[in-house]
Write a protein that binds this DNA or RNA. Structure first.
Lengths: 227, 227
DNA sequence: TCAAAAGTGTTAAGTTTACACCCATGA
DNA sequence: TCATGGGTGTAAACTTAACACTTTTGA
């Protein structure tokens, strides 16, 4: 078997995944971070991570790790990239692949999150993170910020039914700037796949606000999106 | 050392890098591909790749592998992402990190390339590639196409001095569509860091065309680019 | 002298931005 | 009744797209 020789001479590495988990709450983007109650770096803040196992792909490892923390399946995730500096983890050489996830902050397993000592943190008030996790976060933010403007991924951060005010406030949080209400709504209403429902949300105002819904099937027909 | 235990239980993996090497010649984008004269998959077409070693970062491995093939240092490279399906390489489990590189097709080590049995191939007439290399190529193309419009990375594919016709033809090859000559030149001439030289290229026409140059220092002052 | 690539401005269409008031309701 | 967030249209500024002819020169 000539294959054998070809591979055998080379070193092997631990491969990990790290998750940048975005949530949106009360006008702010948040990350779900661990205050580590385990070694290494016990007591410090980090992203949720884990090691890739033999019987799973790297993408599957990321899904598993996300589920271990949040209990959630079928979450929108995207790879940020591989981080491979030699001493990025001072304990051992570990090559890590970062992923970001967009979850609805109202639906996750609070027990699990609590048991991992994880907390939602305002993205503009992040604590110091271990290793190269700050770079992972920065890259994830940039990637997400850039993608959210031309693919309808932001809806993953909202409940199924949302008001246009919520939607605008989400985009303002992501872009870090305010937007014109009339122009925003004009753009949204031109997109057929953002459907008005006949429901009203009375929690945010006395008058109540119309609830909208994102329709994936309609989106797939045109795939046009721009906010 | 509690660290030890934490890592020891986990499996290790071969980690490779694969390079999508772009060149531009006679109006076409080209990739530098290997017709493998070694196992595994001898005789088939593949990207240039190699294994990450103990004493190098993943980025450095990509640079090394690119240099092994082309003899070039200081090449513009960007990570495409990690590819981690379990059976992506049928020989052994290997996790690969793909990078694309932009090189000037007039300056590389022809001996080295020949000794690796590598050939430039028109990107629109690619042979069947092994493993998941077609996906790597597609992702690299998309990434590059999207980046080349708002960062001045395309110049890496051209000689230091280039004509505006060459520049336009490069962008047409990348975008896969023709562009309006006057509009194109208008945009280019508004960018201060694309400097007119006093040299003329007579190889492409009887009349001769003005040669231009990209000035990095001037670019850094504004960082505005849009084609 | 003519073929072949280089070079050059203007106008219309489309897109984006700026901007202010009335509405409905519960407290 | 009034404070609060919800909802609505138009015009100016800017950006993008469409378009055709003259110049230079070597073969």
């Amino acid at each position: 078997m000539p294959k054998r020789n070809y591979y055998r001479e080379h070193p092997k590495f631990y491969v990990a995944v790290d998750c940048i988990i975005f949530g949106f709450d009360k006008g702010s983007l948040n990350l779900l971070l661990l205050k580590r109650n385990f070694e290494p770096s016990k007591g410090k803040w980090s992203l949720m991570g884990g090691f890739v196992q033999k019987e799973e792909s790297v993408d599957d490892a990321a899904k598993r790790v996300l589920k271990e923390l949040t209990g959630l399946d079928n979450v929108y995730m995207e790879q940020v990239g591989a981080f491979g500096e030699i001493n990025r983890d001072p304990g051992e050489r570990v090559i890590s692949v970062a992923y970001y996830a967009l979850i609805n902050i109202d639906s996750y397993d609070r027990e699990l999150v609590h048991s991992h000592n994880a907390f939602w943190t305002d993205i503009n008030k992040l604590p110091k993170l271990i290793f190269d996790h700050p770079e992972m976060v920065d890259m994830a933010r940039d990637l997400m910020k850039q993608k959210v403007g031309h693919k309808p991924i932001g809806f993953n951060l909202l409940p199924k039914l949302f008001t246009l005010t919520q939607l605008q406030s989400l985009y303002e949080a992501i872009y870090g700037e305010t937007m014109d209400k009339r122009n925003f709504r004009k753009r949204v209403m031109e997109m057929e796949f953002i459907e008005m429902t006949d429901e009203i949300d009375k929690t945010g105002s006395k008058r109540g606000a119309r609830l909208y819904r994102m329709n994936d099937d309609v989106y797939r027909k045109t795939r046009k999106f721009k906010i």
